[in-house]
Amino acid sequence: MSRILEETDRLKALGWCGERVARDPVNQPMINNWVEAMGDTHPAYREGLAPPAMVQVWTMRGLHPAPQPDDPLHAMSAVLDEAGFTSVVATNCEQTYHRALKVGELLTVRSRLSDVVGPKKTSLGVGWFVTTESTWFSGEEPVATMLFRILKYQPRPQAAAASPITPVVSRDTAFFWEGTAAGQLRIQRCEACGRLRHPPGPMCPACGATSMGFVVSEGAGTVYSYVVHHHPPVPGKRLPFVVALVELPEGVRVLGEFLGESVEIGRPVRCTFVRVGGFHLPAWEAAA
């Protein structure tokens, strides 16, 4: 621990260091690659203005990064690795853009270590939060800054992050999940008497037949009841979330997470599907 604190003091005392010059000036082809990949159609980016969020891209170290011993984050990470805090996760990134960048400007970045805080107990394990600051310059003019924080932690032996629950599938219900995978909400239909049923089963409770087909629902219904779940945590869900029981015009009810903003009984909804652990689960969103 004293080694971590010593190194923190040493690196903080260095102040701004780790200067790096961009490989290329701000240029239209790289902007084009970026907007194409992001799906961003902002018209100014076609005309020589760089997307603000691209600032860090210009000074990335590239495919074959040269060693940079005076980079404060690199140096601090090495010390924490030695102390057993080997895992890393980024927790915060705050970028401020002083002005727009134009094609032709050549950027330089400098960084400094601003803070190392720890050891802290976190949900991932015990670790240290390492915060660095970076400033980008065009010539001598600062054009953007970034605060970047990582957690270097000692992974817990059983950091078994609860994986989301997936449905148990039987021969009787496989058709339903095959349907959701194909984007269909299938409702079981008795081939003998035509009765629709959900959840499905192997034998028609009305006529006793065991020959089952299905119809594909339009997926439009209304909320019959709902729950806003606050506690306890549910694997794979962010609290609070809404689960709705939806009545379909076909005469059955289907339960799923409600993904919209405001829920109430009677609200028209339409079916969508969310992918969880290889399954496509029915879910509901507000109908227009």
């Binding site: 629950i165 449905p167 599938v169 959840p199 729950v227 779940h229 306890p232 997470e257 689960l281």
Partner: peptide, 21 residues
């Protein structure tokens, strides 16, 4: 288990939540 597959994966997985519905 199959019955629970219509509810738990969708997030309805505690006694309180099932009663709340």
């Amino acid at each position: 288990g199959v019955d629970n597959g219509w509810h738990y994966p969708m997030g309805l997985g505690t006694p309180a939540a099932t009663v709340a519905m």
